[in-house]
């Protein structure tokens, strides 16, 4: 379980998150709200990619920064934009990420094959990322986030740029993982996924509230 207490985040004078308190239980949490409302900022805070200006984030009851290592050891993070290494193949990149996550290389290779098969990327995993379209890149970032058995998944618009069928495949994987993990994601497909979500939160004007 991930808990945020009185979290604030500002950029200069602009306060993006203003003393929010929210709990993310096991299951799927959808973040909705207008562009620039702070959804991605909130995900970056959950993923320890940024630090809050104030407040406490706790993972399994232990507050950060003490729990940062434990959280990162079981985190799967898919931000919207990643400087992907264009000259590596998708598989090489995934295996590198597996090494950084401390996963067994052979098992990670097998798992990457299985994930990419389901999301329609498997035929291209030995191709260089430089040849990938926007949607393929998005799926690759999603696939690396799913490696291992992450207990916390922070996904920023994982289905953007995907056609309906592929988006459904990605969503199905996310829902499966949400059975045993805390999954927090922003999406433009909130209506379709809401029935499977344990909560839908609206982020707006620095506040987070149930939709």
């Amino acid at each position: 379980m991930l808990t945020l207490a009185d979290i604030s985040r500002s950029y200069g004078r602009k306060r993006v998150l203003d003393g929010i308190s929210v709990t993310f239980p096991t299951g799927l949490t959808l973040l909705v709200g207008p562009s620039g409302a702070g959804k991605s900022t909130l995900l970056r805070l959950l993923a320890t990619a940024e630090k809050p200006n104030g407040g406490t984030i706790a993972w399994d009851g232990v507050a950060l920064p003490g729990a940062r290592k434990a959280l990162r050891a079981t985190l799967g993070y898919a931000p919207q934009a990643v400087d992907l290494p264009e000259d590596l193949t998708a598989r090489e990149f995934a295996l590198h990420m597996a090494a950084l996550k401390g996963l067994d290389a052979r098992a990670a290779d097998l798992q990457f094959g299985a994930i990419t098969e389901r999301i329609g990327l498997h035929a291209d995993i030995n191709n260089r990322i430089a040849t990938f379209s926007g949607g393929m890149r998005r799926r690759l970032v999603f696939a690396q986030a799913m490696l291992g058995a992450p207990r916390l998944l922070a996904l920023d618009e994982p289905t953007a740029e995907l056609d309906g069928e592929t988006a459904a495949s990605v969503s199905a994987l996310i829902v499966e993982r949400a059975a045993e993990a805390v999954v927090v994601m922003t999406t433009h497909l909130a209506d379709a996924l809401a029935p499977q979500a344990v909560q839908v939160l609206r982020v707006d004007q620095g506040q987070v509230a149930p939709q």
Partner: peptide
Amino acid sequence: RRQPWQVEEVTAA
């Protein structure tokens, strides 16, 4: 010079 730091820096490596 371009590294996927967005996902590398949140690992426990």
